[in-house]
């Protein structure tokens, strides 16, 4: 079932690529192939693979159970939040918050998560930004 859903979704992507390539306006080309051919060829090849999956899907795909999916969604939300707040909150604070929640999700205690979080945020900032000169955001709060 999963394979079939994926195949349908990806067929739509292939169609999108093909349409996009048809609409591409090329000012002037010195070569016979041009920029359209290769992506269109790939869309065709991917479509063939998708049709195979539609006809012969794998039946042994296992997804996590309801609680597993819930945990997975929380983790994805945390990662998105971390990505969006990375600059605004700054590395130390955003990282500390992320570590606390992720550590909890992986079965750590609140206290351990808090200690790991604060240490990672502060030491990570000093290590990467100050010592190794990899620029990291400090965040609006501390300015």
């Amino acid at each position: 079932m999963s394979d079939r859903i994926f195949a349908v979704v990806w067929l739509a992507v292939c169609a999108l690529i093909a349409v996009q390539m048809q609409q591409l306006e090329i000012p002037f080309s010195y070569e016979p192939v041009g920029p359209k051919a290769f992506p269109s060829l790939l869309a065709g090849l991917m479509a063939l693979c998708c049709i195979y999956l539609l006809v012969k899907p794998d039946t042994d795909i296992q997804w996590p159970d309801a609680s597993g999916i819930r945990k997975g969604l929380v983790l994805i939300a945390v990662l998105f939040g971390y990505a969006i707040l990375f600059e605004q909150l700054g590395f130390p604070l955003a990282t500390a918050l992320m570590v606390v929640v992720v550590s909890r999700l992986f079965g750590g205690s609140w206290l351990n998560g808090l200690i790991t979080g604060v240490l990672t945020g502060v030491l990570g900032y000093l290590f990467f930004d100050r010592l190794l000169q990899v620029t990291l955001p400090i965040g609006q709060l501390w300015r």
Binding site: L79, Y82, A83, F86, F91, T95, M98, V99, V102, S103, R104, F106, G107, G108, N112, G113, T116, G117, T120, G124, F128, V134, T135, L136, P137
Partner: peptide
Amino acid sequence: IPYSIMVPLIAAVSFVGVYG
């Protein structure tokens, strides 16, 4: 070392690298 420490560290290092 438990996952509860290892995984957040991996996440933080990954973000640092991409932000870099």
